[in-house]
Design a protein around this nucleic acid. Structure first.
Lengths: 144, 144
DNA sequence: TACTTATATTTGTTATACTAAATATTGTTA
DNA sequence: TAACAATATTTAGTATAACAAATATAAGTA
């Protein structure tokens, strides 16, 4: 554990975020979902918001553009999503789910809803409010 | 933003942890520290606890062993740390700072103490207590 | 002692994060 | 319109994360 207080909080934050992600990913794997958590986040956004540009998709998923490009590559390779030329801007692509991608999202959605709960056991409504407020406050402190 | 509450908290946690790390890393780079945040964590632990085995070092830094092996490789390549054969267990190495590594830690320590504060602006003592308690609670929920 | 199991480390593979640079296209302005 | 700046995407390089498998050594047991 780090000794300096701020370093300690950074350490806890990083360690906890990694464990939550790791736990969800392990559950994905053990259930044979055959996608990563990050890929799921992209699929979910594509399902809810059709035909987003990669830039908007990156924004919604909280990823940078190179990372999103590669995730879309992987989803395309798995036949779950496709790029389409943007009708009015040839620099841009819109991305949309294939039929297989739609089926994937609809098939996994109910299962995934139930995965997260273990992480949040023993936390009450107030804890969630605090957590959300504090995390957003940190995030905003570091904007730009 | 994710809609399911638990997904939303996971998203916030991940996003915030990444931004905190990214901010610290950017400051490291702009000041020409020439190490990563994770490398710093390893150096700091080596400075405080001489001659840790790689396993103990990994434990202290919250990293798995393959990751720690690679960080030690990088520190060794930079001449900041060295492996030594463990006196009684030939499977094991102890790692220690070189003279250059000690100088690095002592030179950077005061600067690094001041980097973190921006992330924690606008948070009060109570917020820190909540954050620490909640993060530890989540972490423990997912043990094993 | 021979066999088995456990441990410490390394290696390999895949995915993500971040930066910088390259490419193509669009928008702006002199 | 020609030059320039801005934007969307991709590519490349390095670091970290997670997992599985390989290697060497140690410890426990029949």
């Amino acid at each position: 554990m780090q000794k300096e207080p701020y370093n300690m909080y950074s350490f806890l934050l990083d360690r906890t975020a990694r464990r939550v992600k790791q736990y969800a990913q392990a559950t994905f794997s053990s259930k044979g979902f055959d996608i990563t958590l990050d890929q799921w986040m992209v699929l979910k956004n594509l399902y809810e918001f059709k035909d987003l540009s990669q830039k908007d998709l990156a924004e919604r998923c909280g990823k940078d553009q190179p990372t999103l490009t590669r995730i879309v590559d992987l989803l395309a390779k798995k036949g779950l999503a496709e790029r389409q030329i943007h009708p009015s801007d040839r620099r841009s692509f819109t991305v949309h789910l294939t039929e297989k991608g739609v089926e994937k999202v609809e098939g996994l959605s109910p299962e995934i809803k139930e995965i997260r709960t273990k992480a949040w056991e023993n936390l009450n409504e107030n804890d969630f409010k605090h957590l959300e407020r504090i995390l957003n406050s940190i995030y905003k402190n570091l904007e730009f």
